[in-house]
Design a protein around this nucleic acid. Structure first.
Lengths: 136, 136
DNA sequence: CGGCATCCTATGAGATACTG
DNA sequence: CAGTATCTCATAGGATGCCG
């Protein structure tokens, strides 16, 4: 399975960052890591795959990550411009943590969202029995 | 080692969240989890241990966490007020992820900070040889 | 194509003062 | 003691337009 497919499958709107209790750096940092797992990628490619709206945001994310040694920026000095970004070992070192987040998400995110849902309805009325997730 | 001691030792200003590339929920969420590992704690206790300046911030954090089922709030109906917060199983389920973050921090945070430092000095001048961290 | 420059807005975070 | 009520401020995120 390609990293791009993983991205769509695991980090798509169905599992929104909004409810996700973990973040890596900025909003897009974690996704950039995943998107670069298969090798160098171009700016435009990242922009499409991540679905990042504004170019500015992606530029900032990538610059910060380069500054922190998480990836390298390669300007191929071509015209039209051709720039690629590639994960460093340090960048790849984030993967176990990201995977830990994903594993948590697989196992517990639905539970968290159920609690949140439940809470909106019955702020104090009854005991609000846990809607899903019987304790293992 | 108590969770409180862990808190001071591992999440103190010497390892500031500012440079820490991971976050759990809000700024204080992760620390609340760690602070509650040893059992229920009172509002004031949390406020002291975490060093959270404003009561509002802690209140918000705790309310959000309760809403998400990460902890429970118990009002002991006493005067003066006595309220305790206790982790749920769901709240405890965050621990492996937090530990993964800490492990990453132990192994790579210094490296990241070195890169960051280096980058401020030589934005483009020379090749900026990696200051520390020979590849493994 | 891969950016900057500019502007805008929502939100997080905190300070301070007050209350049951 | 455990909050609530306001207010401020900084920053992240995003929209749009221009440039080499």
């Amino acid at each position: 399975m390609s990293a791009d497919a993983q991205l769509s499958a695991r980090m798509d709107p169905a599992c929104p960052m909004a409810a996700f209790p973990f973040h890596v750096g900025g909003k897009w940092t974690g996704m950039v890591v995943v998107a670069l797992l298969d090798g160098p990628r171009r700016f435009g490619h990242l922009r499409q795959v991540l679905g990042v709206s504004s170019a500015k945001v992606l530029t900032e994310t990538l610059r910060d990550m380069a500054r922190d040694g998480l990836l390298t920026r390669t300007d191929h000095q071509a015209n039209p411009p051709h720039v690629t970004y590639e994960l460093t070992d340090l960048g790849r070192s984030l993967l176990p943590v990201i995977d830990a987040m994903r594993e948590w998400s697989d196992q517990h995110l639905a539970d968290l969202l159920a609690h949140r849902q439940n809470h909106s309805l019955a702020t104090e009325s009854d005991a609000a029995p846990t809607p899903s997730s019987p304790p293992k």
